[in-house]
Design a protein around this nucleic acid. Sequence first.
RNA 1: GCCGGGGUGGCGGAAUUGGUAGACGCGCACGACUCAAAAUCGUGUAUCGCAAGGUGUGCGGGUUCGACUCCCGCCCUCGGCACCA
Length: 801
Amino acid sequence: MNSYDHSSIEAKWQKQWDDAGIFKTNQNPTDKMYILVEFPYPSGNLHVGHWYAFAVTDIFARYMHHVGKDVFFPFGFDSFGLPAENAAIKRGLNPKDWTYSNIAHMQKQVKSMGTMIDWSTQVATSDPEYYRWTQWLFLQFYKKGLVTHEQSHVNWCPSCKTVLANEQLEAGLCERCSSVVEQKVMMQWNIKITQYADRLIDDLDDVAWPTHIKESQKNWIGRSHGTFFTFDIKDAEENIKVFTTRPDTFMGVTYVVIAPEHELIQELKSTISNWNEVEEYIERTNQKTNLDRQTNKQKTGVQLNGIKAIHPATKQEIPIFISDYVLASYGTGCVMAVPAHDERDFEFATLYNLPIVQVVEPAITSNTPSIINKKPYLDLSGHLINSGEFDSLPVSEAQEIITTRYGTKTTTYKLQDWSVSRQRYWGCPIPMIHCASCGVVPVPEQDLPVRLPDMDKIEIRDDGKSPLAHNTEWVTTTCPACGGSAQRETDTLDTFVDSSWYYMRYTDPVNESEFASADALRTFMPIDFYSGGSEHTNRHLLYARFFFKVMYDLGLVTQTEPFITRNNRGLILGPDGEKMSKSKGNVIDPDSVVETVGSDVVRSYLAFMGPYGEAGNYPWDPNGVVGIRRFFERVFALASRAGQNDSQQSLVALHTMLSKIHYDFEQLKFNTALSKLMICLNELEKHECSVKTLSQFLIPLNVFAPHVAQEIWEMIGFSGFVYHQKFPVADLGVLEGQSFKIMIQINGKTRFSHETSNSLSEADVLECIGGTDEYKKWVGDKKIIKTIYVKDRLLNIVVSE
RNA sequence: GCCGGGGUGGCGGAAUUGGUAGACGCGCACGACUCAAAAUCGUGUAUCGCAAGGUGUGCGGGUUCGACUCCCGCCCUCGGCACCA
């Protein structure tokens, strides 16, 4: 009896595929397709999400392989990062040993998926052979002037004891440990991603990504067009530069507000008469966390006594305030307040009894009353009032004229520069040297990599420094410029730097003289399909695009976008419909499911849960898994009784499936692709089915269930690997002459149908159905007003009632 | 508040883009096999109705011979951003 013993089948075929090396990448592809999945962090254990990422993408990769693409499907590990270091601190483990034993274990787990991954491509970002090139790229960025080392306002996680990028915050909390993040000023290495803000937005036009991903990135970058105005300060040399998107409201400015952290305040210290009060407010602001500032939106502030700003147009003196509702990091850090037309300014003005001057009269439209009822309102279709010479100008015209007269056109972004310094050990050392006489000196390229030293004890102190700082032997070095004694930089790079270029290293993973050869890059880049998690939309995906653009400018790559298409995966939820978590006890362990029902079942079930391209979150149904298992068992059962002949129905079933299934794969609808195989099997079971027909069925099945397909392939007497088979082409001749139904509608409602095997004209259909009882019942002697005929699909007869 | 997705049986989801709503799978019910149960196989399964037939894709309108699909107005829900001037 041919039963489905998944364990032995999987072990058997995985070994044979491996021994035969059938998944080796074709280095001279004629029709290349680079399929990439975000590489995992080697946490130590594979979860269902990893399966959903790699096994289901493997289904897509295998489909592409069978239809003739030269698929490149690599794999690696994003192996620097905090968990290794935390394991070291908590449990006294060596971060390197911990990481590499996890990698070894996870590799085995991934191999159990039975994917067509080419393992010879594997990279790990913590390998010196890899991070050598991370450092090299960092130095190229530095030479291009894109790297700065400066005092910066940073997000500090007191629990992780390291700096976080804005992208690593979630509602003011550390994304990793949910600690309340503090604000600090520290010397930091920053990369000037803001210089690429425009291109990062504009080039989105060139990629075929889902709209929501593009929109999210645009939002994150937050480009807005507006005007700078400069307000002089009476009897002082300094002035206040503000940014606004509503220059038309310029004549309604009744005061200005400066962010408390703004350096201008310090410069004005001697002229401010209530300095004590001001200083106290600044102190209070500095102690506030981002979270406080975001949740407690009650307006507070302090007027700067003794100084006044001068309105550039009216020359009137207006008060100056500091308030934490103005952010230092956005625009100029100063705003002109127009309480009549801005909610926040309105609130503040009401609190401090400041004048409110309406300068825009809304246009009379149907929704005007609701605008006016709202105390401060914005109306872009109105005209100006109380604005002197600008009165009666429409808003858009006023914006132009006032900007030309008093201001400068400009563009600002929400995106901030990328802070890449991390005060932790297990990361890529920043290849910089601090010399007392020469300052910051980059490590010469021939000295790369700057190796991370092995350290017996990893200890995080409260000095805000990396554990590396306490390794004097490693820190002490000589200055490449003057030869004097110098210190190494002890911060390590944000791991998002490591992962910004790994997909290029895959193309040439063991190259010792370049990060990747131009030849390899030309052969495999760009990435045709990139699957990842939606949490990376505004982080990895943005950083990687930025990296690639800089590399383009450096002449290192020839394209401007690395990822042609992008697919954000959804989440696999627990059987209870909730996100899997240990505390909820709803975690599915893929290893144990694989053990009981087999790898092929898990792969296929994950594909069957729902469409892959829509980022839907699907609950894991243990019964659903059993359904897939039954399907494979039925294929085995069919195999044991397949003979030499086919009934016509079997051929029709096979070729119908073969003709329709491509559409599903192309739409990433692996769920409906698999359902077409099930429909086909349902038919083959009912009719006489030949070994040959079954063998053709096995090739699309191999995409989902490579072990099952291969085993049956052998069982029914075929040799070689199914992997080497081309996807069968549907024989449309078999499908010709099949009978089909033309539905008959009366007044748009389907009432009956007419079965035929020939293509019919409208008159033919009418003639065929004219004598039927159904026709007499629904049409009878009612008057036919008109008919609509969609050839061979439907005839709609409109009759009078 | 702003931006972007979604609302279809008991459940996951189909409907090739305006043409038979509910494919496929799960679950459930009944039947066969069995001493019995499981497994397996078969049949059925949106809903009201004995039936003829009616009603149904979040709600209310509209366009059309015909609407899950298009338009207008709501409601709910998920995700991202959020004092961004």
